[in-house]
């Protein structure tokens, strides 16, 4: 027990938590936007892989870092458009399409990586984002070091939470997005194109997911590995439900998961050989299942989630 408290008191733990949480924030917000518009996007795992590969590749081929982020985002938006074409315009199953996008997008990423770098045996590295300590704030002991000495992409992730909240809850377009996820007929009846609203939301959400993927290869690590996204996309899908489709709660849930993840790495090191390390690996997932059981029961689903909208159809 005292070992756990020791871990909680180290700056390293908090810095790691904030680092681990960054891709989760991008992914969760992205998924949240899609689902608020009524479209489940299970392509998230693949779209994050696309983001991870394309952002990294941009920089490896000589582009600059922010250009890489932008490139990753636009690739994500492109796959979002693909998902929206199938689910929003052709009204196909959102589950099947999403899984299909994940399989297609991740395989395509690996394929393109292999095609561009056929002879690389050890994954080549790039010069990733460097930590940017914010003057004054980063001098605060503990908190300052953990929160304000991070990569610019992490600051962007944290900034996205209030921005997405504001967009969804304080702007006309956000209202249209939320309404499209609750009752698309109401949106149509007010003279707004439901298909356009949903397509736009899925593209923006997918772009955010891809930036989350890019964070992994361009800020956290400096190379692209196969299987690098490693289920983070699925965690984001669960976090959206945990958050009841609210950006603030999404941040909270992501922090909780990231904290457990950072904790388990450290607990593995300190426990010696008494408890097998697999037990610690399992912990964050067990805890998130428990948290889900508590939170998801009360969750208010967007009522038109998974419900396709067909214009001018006879009911």
């Amino acid at each position: 027990m005292s070992e756990l408290i020791d871990i909680l008191l180290t700056t390293g733990f908090w810095a790691a938590t904030i680092r681990i949480v960054s891709p989760l924030i991008f992914g969760t917000l992205g998924e949240l936007i899609c689902e608020r518009a009524g479209v489940l996007n299970l392509g998230i795992e693949g779209i994050m892989t696309v983001g991870a590969m394309s952002g990294w590749m941009w920089v490896y081929q000589g582009g600059d870092l922010w250009g890489g982020v932008l490139f990753a985002a636009s690739m994500g938006a492109l796959f979002g458009l693909l998902h929206a074409t199938f689910t929003v315009h052709l009204c196909l199953s959102q589950h099947v399409t999403g899984i299909g996008i994940t399989l297609f997008a991740s395989s395509l990423s690996y394929f393109v990586y292999r095609m561009l770098l056929p002879s690389a045996t050890t994954p080549p590295k790039i010069e990733p984002f460097q930590n940017y300590p914010i003057p004054l704030l980063s001098d605060i002991p503990m908190v300052g070091e953990a929160l304000f000495n991070q990569s610019p992409l992490t600051y962007l992730a944290l900034l996205c939470v209030p921005i997405v909240w504001y967009m969804l809850h304080r702007t006309p377009i956000g209202l249209a997005v939320r309404m499209a996820g609750e009752n698309p007929v109401a949106v149509e009846a007010q003279g707004i194109n439901v298909l356009a609203v949903r397509t736009g939301a899925v593209m923006v959400g997918s772009a955010l997911m891809a930036v989350g993927g890019a964070f992994i290869t361009m800020s956290w690590f400096d190379a692209f590995y196969f299987g690098m996204v490693n289920g983070r996309g699925w965690i984001c899908v669960a976090l959206v439900i945990f958050a009841s489709w609210k950006p603030g709660k999404a941040l909270l849930g992501a922090l909780l998961f990231a904290g457990l993840e950072a904790m388990q790495v450290r607990a593995q090191l300190s426990s010696g050989t008494v408890i097998p390390y697999q037990f610690f690996l399992m912990l964050p997932y067990v805890m998130s299942i428990l948290a889900m059981i508590v939170m998801a029961r009360k969750a208010k689903y967007p009522q038109a989630l998974l419900v396709p909208f067909r214009r001018g159809e006879r009911v």
């Binding site: 006309p172 209202l175 309404m179 707004i192 967007p302």
Partner: peptide, 21 residues
């Protein structure tokens, strides 16, 4: 054609302003 989880005023003002405001 109302969204149950939104408020009365949100339901009423939808689409009355330019979406890009």
């Amino acid at each position: 054609t109302l969204a149950d989880n939104l408020t009365v005023i949100e339901n009423i003002v939808l689409g009355t302003e330019s979406l890009w405001n």
